[in-house]
Simulated assay, not measured.
Amino acid sequence: MNPKHYSMLIQWDPRDNIYVVTIPELAGCRTHGDTYEEAIKNALEVIELWIEDAQKAGEPIPQPTFAA
């Protein structure tokens, strides 16, 4: 699976001054970054880790969704 194919919800958190990224297709998959670019980089890494952990556990891996 290509991490770039998953949806990313990127939100600014003014309280902590960070960008928070949620991956809607992958339950509990969230990360953050001090900059927008760092948040996206971290999100791509956390998607890979989420998929790797699911594979090791024999869990199903949701397909990326596409909303037209």
Rank of each mutant, 00 (worst) to 15 (best):
residue 65 T to M: 05
residue 21 V to D: 04
residue 11 Q to W: 00
residue 24 P to N: 12
residue 61 I to E: 11
residue 12 W to I: 08
residue 64 P to D: 09
residue 57 A to G: 01
residue 62 P to A: 02
residue 22 T to Y: 01
residue 9 L to W: 06
residue 19 Y to R: 01
residue 56 K to G: 03
residue 44 L to Q: 10
residue 34 D to K: 13
residue 25 E to L: 08
residue 52 E to F: 10
residue 59 E to C: 08
residue 9 L to I: 04
residue 67 A to Q: 14
residue 21 V to I: 04
residue 28 G to M: 03
residue 34 D to N: 12
residue 10 I to A: 02
residue 68 A to C: 10
residue 15 R to T: 12
residue 35 T to R: 07
residue 34 D to P: 06
residue 27 A to W: 11
residue 53 D to W: 15
residue 4 K to G: 00
residue 58 G to P: 10
residue 3 P to H: 09
residue 20 V to T: 12
residue 64 P to L: 09
residue 48 E to K: 01
residue 33 G to F: 01
residue 23 I to G: 00
residue 42 N to L: 07
residue 9 L to F: 09
residue 42 N to F: 04
residue 13 D to E: 10
residue 39 A to S: 06
residue 40 I to T: 02
residue 67 A to W: 08
residue 36 Y to Q: 04
residue 45 E to G: 05
residue 55 Q to H: 09
residue 67 A to I: 14
residue 2 N to T: 06
residue 58 G to H: 09
residue 16 D to Q: 06
residue 19 Y to K: 01
residue 22 T to R: 09
residue 3 P to E: 14
residue 35 T to E: 08
residue 62 P to E: 05
residue 45 E to P: 04
residue 51 I to Y: 01
residue 19 Y to I: 01
residue 17 N to T: 14
residue 44 L to H: 09
residue 15 R to D: 14
residue 32 H to R: 08
residue 25 E to H: 08
residue 61 I to K: 11
residue 29 C to F: 05
residue 18 I to R: 12
residue 30 R to Q: 12
residue 4 K to D: 09
residue 61 I to L: 11
residue 54 A to S: 11
residue 8 M to T: 00
residue 4 K to M: 07
